[in-house]
Design a protein around this nucleic acid. Structure first.
Lengths: 207, 207
DNA sequence: CCCGATTGTGAAATTTAATTGCAATAGTTT
DNA sequence: AAACTATTGCAATTAAATTTCACAATCGGG
């Protein structure tokens, strides 16, 4: 696997989601044409995207949904489910920790972190809120490699330090501040700026 | 304004956010070089992006932060703030309605909608939860043009119908289902698939 | 009025994405 | 079992989008 366009990777995640949906409706086989209709791309695009990752279909027939879902999610997610933590047990962090979609995709929220003594020790869904001071410790013990950040903007630098010192490999950042880790090891970052989405949306409505 | 790359529009939203941050620290002037450092792009990229929308700087000096923020957010958001509603008063919808970042950016959550009688009538933050049956009515009355969807996947088709019949112009969709409005008028859609982000993140950590 | 700093922008280069065309194959029908 | 239809996988091509480059033009300070 070398230079796969990120756009293709993103669409593949979309295909997985769509295929799971079709599966839940009892479908077993799907063609690139049908999958394309459901995901609003062209059939050629579907085949092209998949071809980056291998051969999935049977000529003349189509794709076996079950097999494809399994192989694709192995590629994106790996074989095992991931343990994930959420930093910030405020409104957003709490809501995210209850978000069923994460579990369905194979990502389990197993811990939250906060510095507010009021919140530490509480249970939210199936996860407990821990003292952020124990971040490195607990993420190690629980084998957590991915973190979701949902703290107020003013706390972000503090959080950056905790993450830098830990074993975390990937970060999903909901805080509208560009992250800047001072580490040698590479930490993957995905930024989700919700307010930015509204800016773009209102811009698009005017075009 | 003709063919502005969407990637540029997205970065411009990022610049706004960064400039506001610098402003809050008391800075008044910034160079493309400095802005680039803060947003992790190149100075050339910054200047290029801005140039799609006009001339903002002073040769030899840099950019007046206050002026640029004002002009850019006028371009993306327009002069007036927007009224926004949230469909789905569950955990996610509730958290989003309290999200301060929306207000800071000039988007006010003025209503929520749900079909659960238990929830209808409650106040969440400053907004009330209304019966989804009154969607068209209330969005019209309150001059709401943007909607955020945060319902369970199985309710999505119902929601699509309500939106199609209303005056809504743009949709921010948190439900992992590709939307499909049957309308002549164009509705702008931005999809935010949170589970997809984790797929991509775990994929990136393995590269 | 010279000098270093900095913008704005065409043009070139690069990267990414979409399209086309077709051989190969699987299942279905006659 | 031959003909027919549907469909994949790919190589090659074309097109589009994005980024980088290079430099003239200009500003402000000493």
């Amino acid at each position: 696997m070398k230079n796969i366009p990120i756009a293709s990777v993103e669409r593949v995640a979309k295909y997985i989601r769509c295929l799971k949906h079709l599966q839940s409706k009892g479908e077993e086989i799907v063609s690139s044409k049908k999958l394309a209709e459901h995901t609003q791309v062209t059939p050629e695009q579907v085949r092209k995207d998949l071809s980056y990752f291998g051969k999935f279909g049977k000529t003349g027939t189509g794709y076996n949904i079950k097999k494809v879902v399994k192989r694709l999610s192995n590629i994106l997610k790996g074989r095992k489910n991931w343990n994930v933590c959420i930093i910030g047990a405020g409104a957003l962090g709490t809501a995210l920790s209850r978000y069923q979609g994460f579990r369905d995709a194979g990502y389990n929220i197993v811990a939250l972190f906060d510095k507010d003594p009021e919140k530490i020790g509480k249970k939210i869904g199936s996860a407990e809120v821990y003292d952020i001071k124990k971040f490195s410790d607990i993420t190690k013990k629980k084998d957590i490699k991915l973190a979701i950040i949902a703290v107020p903007a003013e706390s972000i630098e503090e959080v950056e330090e905790y993450i830098a010192k830990s074993q975390i490999k990937g970060v999903l950042n909901f805080v509208p501040v560009t992250l800047n880790f001072n580490t040698k090891r590479k930490i993957a970052i995905i930024e989700v700026d919700l307010a930015q989405k509204l800016y773009i949306l209102s811009y698009l409505t005017k075009k």
